[in-house]
């Protein structure tokens, strides 16, 4: 992976449908995503959730792999600080996330493409909002250039 990779935003066709992968921890964020459904909150269909037991399970390699395979954005979502079902897996995730953000920036991947979010089981609305926001931003940014990833 190398080099700045984004096409000019204005040249992007409106029809670009960003692909987003969201890694959600089982206990809070996945539950939050479910609650968005139970509450029938509507959000764009661009996101696909991969359930992991804890955000601390998310290996930076998964995130890189997702970008490499053509994802336009990646979300890692876990319990709020101090709420992690495994005590502090989310703190570890946060540390890795910071490191990863820097790495991605160096690789020319805009920081809007990678988000760490704390979403509680009661925050269906937040899950929906996070997705909405990211979709809007990625639509503005346009696709990642494949050859550059």
């Amino acid at each position: 992976m190398s080099g700045p990779v984004t096409k000019d935003a204005r040249s992007t066709e409106k029809t670009h449908e960003p692909k987003i992968v969201a890694f959600c921890c089982n206990w809070c964020s996945y539950a939050g995503a479910d609650l968005a459904g139970v509450s029938r909150l509507q959000y764009p269909s661009n996101v696909r959730v991969i359930r992991v037991m804890c955000s601390g399970r998310v290996d930076p390699a998964f995130v890189l792999k997702a970008f490499e395979l053509g994802a336009d954005g990646v979300i890692v979502a876990g319990c709020h600080p101090a709420d992690c079902h495994y005590i502090n897996g989310n703190e570890k995730a946060a540390m890795r996330g910071d490191f990863l953000s820097e790495f991605l920036e160096d690789a020319g991947i805009e920081d809007q493409r990678f988000r760490m979010e704390w979403i509680a089981g009661s925050e269906g609305q937040k899950f929906a909002d996070v997705v909405k926001k990211m979709v809007a931003e990625l639509e503005r940014l346009g696709p990642l250039c494949e050859e550059d990833v």
Binding site: G37, V38, R40
Partner: peptide
């Protein structure tokens, strides 16, 4: 999970859902 995270949240977009 094609209900809580799909049909329920993309009700107006059956094709995309």
């Amino acid at each position: 999970n094609i209900r809580d995270q799909c049909s329920w949240v993309h009700r107006l977009e059956p094709v995309k859902a």
